[in-house]
Amino acid sequence: MNATAKQPISMNISALPGATTREMLADQPMRMTISKLNFWYGPKQTLFDVTLGFAANHITAMIGPSGCGKSTLLRTLNRMYEAVSNARLEGEIQLDGQSILTQDVTQLRRRVGMVFQRPNPFPKSIFDNVAYGPRINGHNQPLAEVVESSLRRAALWEEVKDQLHKSAYELSGGQQQRLCIARALAVEPEVLLLDEPCSALDPISTAKIEELLVQLKELCTIVTVTHNMQQAARVSDFTAFLLTGVMVEYNPTPQLFTTPSDPRTEAYITGRFG
């Protein structure tokens, strides 16, 4: 990591200079904030002084070349990095103004749901997949209602309503990924994290999921990681560009893609590296 790259480009969002689009970002109430985040896997530091916030009921996309730390950053938001034994984190992450680092982790993950890169349904029926979260977390609604409303929100209900007791593995890849979204939605998270949710899917399934994400803004705050810039441009409201563990630029999506403020962002979105 050389000195120029290490320089923290990320900044206090309200301190950004005054273009109207930037004010748009500054005015948003933040659901989650990350400040001064440094992260190590063993001796290797993978995130450097990252600071950013995720606007409530908006979609924030994190883009960057492979290995830039965007997935790691995403996995700090629900403390999924703790599954790796030698991971270490310094800095602060807050959800609704409270530090997530000192909370009970299972409680945190109930509030911050996650969808993974490859569809990963459980080896259970469609119904039991969606019902898993409500079952382990306790719930006050009848399970069947929770399952139906979650599947409807994930735009999967019409396709599976007659086969809820079939194995989830009998669904297509795109359907499985929407099932995973329904499974995450069933515990009514405030924030939904998506780790390259479409990278294993065909274009039609991808389009369906993108459409779905835009609808889900109503329900929760969405943070998605993608290496597909067109996808970030299509669905997100704000975009953060990461490079070798440093947040280079964080701006409203139209601005980042049309008038990037950092030459490295421009180089990336015009395809000069990554």
């Binding site: 599954a83 993950r109 996650m114 993974f116 080896p123 382990i136 977390n137």
Partner: peptide, 14 residues
């Protein structure tokens, strides 16, 4: 697969 474990953890499972 690690994915499957993590899916459960991500839902708030211990």
């Amino acid at each position: 697969p690690r994915d499957v474990r993590e899916a459960a953890l991500a839902l708030g499972a211990t």
